[in-house]
């Protein structure tokens, strides 16, 4: 991380907890303008909690207990709820995994998007309508005029996700948080949505946090990757570096365990033994130690720091140097 330039978005030692149990523990990453940063890890690792913390939309009882979120240098964790309300949508917005559930079922999709524009920019309704129409066109909604008059249940999942993206981008935020935006969609629709996110990011220089557990999606879409395990970031780096030379055993195993189109038939797949523990049972030391093939006494005892091992490549593993040498 370079300190001399202000990153667009920075999570600085962000810690999120519920009843004294941390769900996210000292998460640190930067996202630059026009950059797609993928946050990956198995379910239960705290990806969604991180996203909601960035938006300050954490569920009841769950709160940020330490660390900061900076948006273009502005500390979001210190804003009042009213100030934060103005930041959401205008400067930072979010899309979710279940687009149909995230939309209001009782309102036409056109009205919903108009609403989000209206609330933020005080435009007259007609003017707002035209704006929404343009946006629908931009996100690839066919027959946008007709679609605007429809309710969410009348549209497919892929179409609802486009509506969500239109709604998230209509006020021109500088950061988009996308939490598993294509997980509920078919692959052919996923390909359309990922293409749209990449284009939007490039054209508008939006910084994107893309949360996914799909390694293929990361390989396709991300510029940089942050790998999360049990509430902590264990490795970050450029997408090419992470795939070519992963240093953390968790990253290595995660990448290896995916069935691939270029595998042989009935080839035995690599596995990661065990499961992600729940936050009440997060282990001491390195949290991956119980599932790690390279575990040592030190791993059980001490938390490994997230160290820079190469330019823009950080790893939190006591054995990363040996592992790197072993290849």
């Amino acid at each position: 991380m370079t300190e001399n330039t202000t990153p667009l978005l920075r999570a600085a030692d962000l810690t999120v907890a519920v009843d004294g149990t941390s769900l996210v523990d000292g998460v640190r990453f930067d996202v630059a303008a026009g950059e797609i940063m993928a946050l990956v890890g198995e379910s239960g690792c705290g990806k969604s909690m991180t996203a909601l913390a960035l938006m300050r939309l954490l569920p009841n009882g769950v709160s940020i207990v330490d660390g900061e979120v900076f948006l273009a240098g502005r500390n979001l964790t210190q804003l009042s709820e009213a100030e934060m309300e103005a930041v959401r949508g205008n400067d930072i917005s979010m899309i979710f995994q279940e687009p149909v559930a995230a939309l209001n079922p009782l309102m036409t999709v056109g009205d919903q998007v108009v609403e989000s524009l209206h609330a933020h920019q005080g435009l007259a309704r007609r003017e707002a309508m035209e704006h929404v129409l343009d946006m629908f066109q931009l996100v690839g909604i066919a027959d946008p005029r007709d679609r605007m008059r429809q309710y969410p249940f009348e549209l497919s999942g892929g179409m609802c996700q486009r509506v969500m993206i239109a709604s998230a981008l209509i006020c021109g935020p500088s950061v988009l948080i996308a939490d598993e935006p294509t997980t509920a969609l078919d692959v052919t629709i996923q390909a359309q949505i990922l293409k749209l996110i990449k284009e939007m990011c490039a054209d508008r220089q939006t910084g994107v946090v893309l949360i996914t557990h799909d390694i293929g999606v990361v390989a396709d879409t991300a510029d940089r990757v942050a790998v999360m395990y049990a509430g902590r970031i264990v490795e970050t780096g450029s997408v090419f570096e992470i795939f070519a030379a992963p240093r953390h055993p968790y990253t290595q195993l995660l990448l290896k365990s995916v069935p691939r189109l270029d595998d042989k038939k009935k080839q035995r797949l690599h596995v990661i033994d065990g499961v992600v523990p729940d936050p009440q049972h997060w282990p001491t030391g390195c949290r991956f130690h119980a599932r790690c093939p390279f575990v040592s006494e030190q791993c059980r005892r001490d938390r490994p720091p997230l160290d820079e091992v190469a330019a823009d490549h950080m790893v939190a593993c006591w054995h990363q140097a040996e592992l790197a040498e072993a290849g």
Partner: peptide
């Protein structure tokens, strides 16, 4: 449409 888990080839 299935992204290959390899950024270079993908």
């Amino acid at each position: 449409a299935i992204p290959l888990p390899d950024p270079v080839r993908q």
